[in-house]
Design a protein around this nucleic acid. Structure first.
Lengths: 216, 216
DNA sequence: ATGAAATGTTGACGATGTCAACACCCGGGT
DNA sequence: ACCCGGGTGTTGACATCGTCAACATTTCAT
């Protein structure tokens, strides 16, 4: 590509690093956040940690495995923020909305990281089991909240998953459009989220008659 | 990365190629479709066209410019397919749903191309004007359809844009989740689309009273 | 203490994007 | 008819990158 930076080196006392795997993940994430995923270079990351290029190969199979691990951690963080928003918001209607806001905020605040999670850097067709598990964990936070919201209504599990997917697709779409600059006017993301959740709210607990399956 | 293919060369009679720019775009798109965007190599593409690497630089500033052009064409064909679905479907309720299906179908049928359009391969922060225009054209197809659907109701323009963005985020989210394998069960994408559009339908033309003005 | 396993290093290789310098070819002005 | 300028394609070279093989060092179990 284009030129490169001088790469600050950091010495280290012992031959072994201590916890290189952890440090590699942190450094990779920092780099992704700073200059995007294309700026991630095994040599540069190694240099920054005062370690040689290829040291990484004792902890990850290859570059993609590193990015997969970063993506996995992203899903974990995302789930934590979703759960926090849900619980801090009082596990009610407003809390659910607040989950959605937290989701989009995570994506917009860490666009490059979010892209690593969803941008196909990871997954040609073989899905990493840890990544899949963590991604499903984040999704489960949505499902749990929805189920909790509907405790009064009689709903089949399938419907909860479907609703959660609906919400997921929506916030994911808003996040992606936001990241890609398709909602460039200031406040457009928030406005859209407000509109979408208002639309959503009028159907989750209140109107079982608008459900297609008619579960009553 | 890993190995590579022998790269079929194609001779050519005249020194000049004729329409290399067009051929480069087609070949790039074919490669993207076949092996993904990481498989796109200037050398390989050149070889396939019976032309030397760097020939590309007479038609595009660099690799990214090529991908940007591919993304631009993606938005153009997407818009065409959306408009076709809308018109062929009779410009009514069903046609609108059919637009959504067409959108998701385009993404799922051409995942790698779709990723080039949205995956941030293009846009560090500087948005290409042609790309932006074409993307807005595709979005406009949604807005137009929505406005047409609401010809009876009294709606401000802002609301139409907002609704269109809502729909866009939704189908974009469904498409992305589908592409990324987060909806892996067969039929999950269609099921989700059905559910989401059922939800959508009950609010576009019918219920002006569910607009966000009043709470609860 | 000793050998094995874990961890880190160096050297090398092929592939890639890109630049500079050069070669070819077509069309318009004389 | 000439020629010559700009558009188009080529070759050579370079820096960078991911990765492998072979080697060095450290840690740990016995």
């Amino acid at each position: 590509m284009t030129p490169s930076k001088p790469a600050a080196r950091k010495p280290r006392r012992s031959y072994h690093h201590g916890n290189l795997r952890r440090a590699l993940l942190d450094e990779a994430l920092a780099t992704i956040h700073a200059v995007g995923v294309d700026g991630v270079t095994l040599r540069e990351i190694g240099a920054r940690l005062g370690v040689s290029r290829t040291a990484l190969y004792r902890h990850f199979a290859d570059k993609r495995a590193l990015l997969t691990a970063v993506a996995t951690e992203g899903f974990r963080t995302l789930r934590e923020q979703l759960v926090t928003a849900w619980e801090a918001g009082g596990r009610g209607d407003a809390a659910f909305r607040s989950m959605g806001v937290a989701y989009v905020r995570f994506a917009v605040a860490n666009p490059a990281h979010y892209r690593v999670m969803f941008g196909g850097f990871v997954d040609p067709q073989v899905r990493d089991p840890e990544l899949t598990a963590e991604a499903e964990g984040a999704f489960q936070a949505l499902v749990d909240a929805l189920v909790s919201l509907q405790h009064a209504a009689v709903v089949r599990d399938d419907d909860s998953v479907l609703m959660a997917r609906h919400v997921w697709a929506l916030v994911h779409g808003v996040a992606m459009l936001g990241i890609d600059g398709h909602l460039c006017e200031p406040g457009a993301v928030d406005e859209l989220m407000g509109y979408a959740f208002e639309r959503l709210r009028t159907g989750i607990a209140a109107n079982p008659d608008t459900r297609p399956t008619q579960a009553r």
